[in-house]
Simulated scan of single mutants.
Amino acid sequence: MIRALLQTAFAGTSAVGLTGVFSVVVSAHSLRGAPASADAALHTWGKAVLASAGVRHEAHGLEHIPREGNVIFVCNHQSHYDAPLNFAYIQKHTRYVAKEELFRIPVFGPALRIAGNIPVRRTGGEEDRARLAEAVTAVRERVSVLFFAEGTRSPDGELKPFKKGAATLAIQAGVPVVPLAVSGTRLILPKGSRAVRWGQRVALVVGEPIPTQGLTMEGRDALTRRLEGAVAQLYAEARERSGDIP
């Protein structure tokens, strides 16, 4: 019991401290126009946060990520540890579409904005549409974007219906969509638990890109359903690899 409490305290303190330090580092690199250096810092941050909770992690299918050009990544969402897992392995200049509340957190929030992440209110209102319209230009010219397409974390590990934002942006920007699935991250700190499950296995599985060339907005719903199916298939593999089998 004492060991579990000490491990939890270490993981929590480390995650907060690492995030604070790397927020400053990423902001500094972003402000001086050095995205590659900011990406390297995010990669180190992801690995360090996972290590601080004793997480055993692996990734498969990374060869499916195109080396050239920008893409939209679409992933399921289970835990605050999803982002560190993604940044630990995705070797591509990538930023997130994230809920606006995160941008209000001291130090971390401004760093999110400076680094080029996109805040949304998830209401589907005019402000969200305007921000996604700006993201179209960003994806075409300088950065890949990752969506947690369910819109919020799944507390029970079951996939929730996908929002249409990822398909909308991909079609408007004319870039492929790369489906991803993560598993095991929700078990690091299970809902209702106060203790980190030290040594938890987690897995990231990457699928083949789905092209959007020639698609119009009329095909947005069909693309969203296709993405749901692709992520569901990858998620089944990720669950086996992480040991989170229902």
Rank of each mutant, 00 (worst) to 15 (best):
I2F: 15
R3F: 08
L6D: 00
L6P: 00
G12R: 07
T13L: 15
A15W: 01
V16N: 04
V21H: 11
V21S: 11
S23L: 04
V26C: 12
V26F: 03
A28P: 02
H29C: 11
G33S: 03
G33Y: 01
A34D: 12
D39M: 11
T44P: 00
W45P: 02
K47E: 15
K47G: 10
V49L: 05
S52F: 07
R56Y: 02
H60K: 10
G61Q: 04
V71E: 06
F73S: 09
V74H: 01
H80W: 14
P84W: 12
N86F: 15
A88I: 05
Y89D: 09
Q91L: 05
Q91M: 07
R95N: 14
Y96H: 11
Y96D: 06
A98M: 14
L102C: 05
R104K: 13
V107L: 15
L112R: 01
R113N: 03
I114F: 04
A115C: 02
N117W: 03
V120W: 02
G125Y: 01
E127W: 04
A130S: 12
A135G: 10
A138C: 02
A138M: 13
V139Q: 07
R140I: 08
R140Q: 15
R142N: 13
V143F: 04
S144L: 03
F147T: 06
A149R: 00
E158A: 15
E158Y: 14
F162P: 10
K163N: 15
G165L: 14
A166F: 05
A167T: 07
T168S: 13
I171D: 09
G174H: 11
G174S: 08
P176M: 08
P179I: 12
A181T: 03
S183Q: 04
R186E: 13
I188V: 14
L189D: 12
K191G: 05
G199M: 01
R201F: 13
V202K: 03
E208Y: 08
P211F: 12
T212S: 11
G214Y: 06
G214K: 00
L215K: 07
T216V: 08
E218D: 15
G219A: 12
D221S: 14
L227N: 09
V231E: 07
A236T: 07
A238N: 03
A238W: 05
E240S: 08
P246I: 10
